[in-house]
């Protein structure tokens, strides 16, 4: 349905996006996961036909989407990372304005506005100016405006940044409903692996402008099938303990996480006994140990040596 071929964007001397190849099938929910600055937003801008690529192409139903941008724009809704609304106006005024800009008129416009307000749960506050809304409400209306013209493809650029868990869950449930019940194709970018894991059928992992891995959640996690993650909680963080662990022949990677360390090691290694021994040697008090199932975060860590939030 929608695909990119060797999509590249160079800003002066910086290559922001380098030969990115991704595709979306109708009704799919695809995640674009990567840390801040990975090139996700630039990729989204090019797919949205707002930013011309330096090279490569975007194809929609086999056609060059950049040459025939109106065909794609008509069926696409883009939710930017920013609150792309007029904050002095009310939710209702914003909805009516964007609805009219999308070509809706009269009763159809009014019905769509009411339906979307209902969907995003803002009917009661529709007459209030956006600048009086909480962060979560702003995010919801930001998405709502995009749904007015009933798009077939929804492209979302980190739509939950900076909001409380309750609002985030509301939004994620809404997107899942749109994808599964309304058959809307979703391209969802985030640096929150939990969101992508929860929402997306397939995931592209992006770093430094390139796609470094792709596949379903399970396929990606299988990269780590020969490894396991041990989460060690300690009373007091100890650099000596960390160094000793890093130098252990069976440990692939150690990262500090909260009040403890995350250790990636090959599966089957009986490492736990030695961990306690090393803690004793470095006078570190272990308060808990857990062996975790690998997450996309672990996959990213494995691939790049960094966490998504680095």
């Amino acid at each position: 349905m929608l695909e990119t071929k060797d999509l590249t964007k160079v800003f002066k001397k910086t290559t922001a996006v380098n030969q990115v190849n991704i595709y979306l099938e109708k009704g799919e929910s695809v995640g674009l996961l990567g840390p801040n600055g990975a090139g996700k937003s630039t990729t989204i801008s090019m797919i949205s036909t707002l930013l011309p690529p330096t090279s490569g192409e975007v194809r929609f139903n086999g056609e060059d989407a950049l040459k025939h941008s109106q065909r794609l724009r008509k069926v696409m809704g883009v939710v930017p990372q920013e609150i792309a609304l007029y904050e002095e106006l009310s939710a209702y005024e914003n909805m009516r304005f964007f609805g009219k800009v999308y070509g809706l008129r009269g009763k159809e416009l009014e019905t769509r506005v009411q339906d979307v307000l209902e969907l995003i749960g803002l009917t009661d506050r529709k007459k209030d100016a956006i600048n009086t809304y909480s962060g979560g409400m702003k995010r919801r209306i930001n998405i709502g405006v995009t749904l007015l013209h009933e798009p077939e493809i929804l492209i979302m650029d980190e739509p939950t940044v900076g909001i409380d868990p309750q609002s985030r869950n509301y939004i994620l449930d809404m997107i899942r409903t749109l994808n599964r019940e309304k058959d809307i194709t979703v391209l969802y970018t985030s640096h929150y692996m939990e969101e992508v894991e929860k929402l997306c059928d397939r995931v592209y992992i992006m770093d430094h402008g390139e796609i470094i891995a792709s596949g379903t959640n399970e396929e990606l996690k299988s990269i780590l099938s020969n490894e396991e993650t041990i989460q060690i909680h300690v009373h007091t963080l100890s650099p000596a303990f960390r160094d000793t662990l890093s130098k252990h022949g069976s440990v692939r990677k150690v990262t500090e996480e909260g009040q403890g360390y995350k250790v990636i090691a090959p599966k089957g290694e009986d490492l736990l006994g030695e961990v306690f021994e090393l803690a004793k040697q470095t006078k570190t008090k272990i308060t808990g140990v857990a062996i975790q199932t690998p997450t996309l975060e672990d996959v990213f860590l494995h691939l790049t040596g960094r966490t998504l939030r680095d």
Binding site: L50, K74, V78, P80, I83, A84, Y86, H149
Partner: peptide
């Protein structure tokens, strides 16, 4: 433009 409203308008066909 900064808040991407301009982009949103362009996508809407303006």
């Amino acid at each position: 433009k900064k808040q991407h409203v301009f982009g949103r308008l362009m996508i809407s066909g303006t």
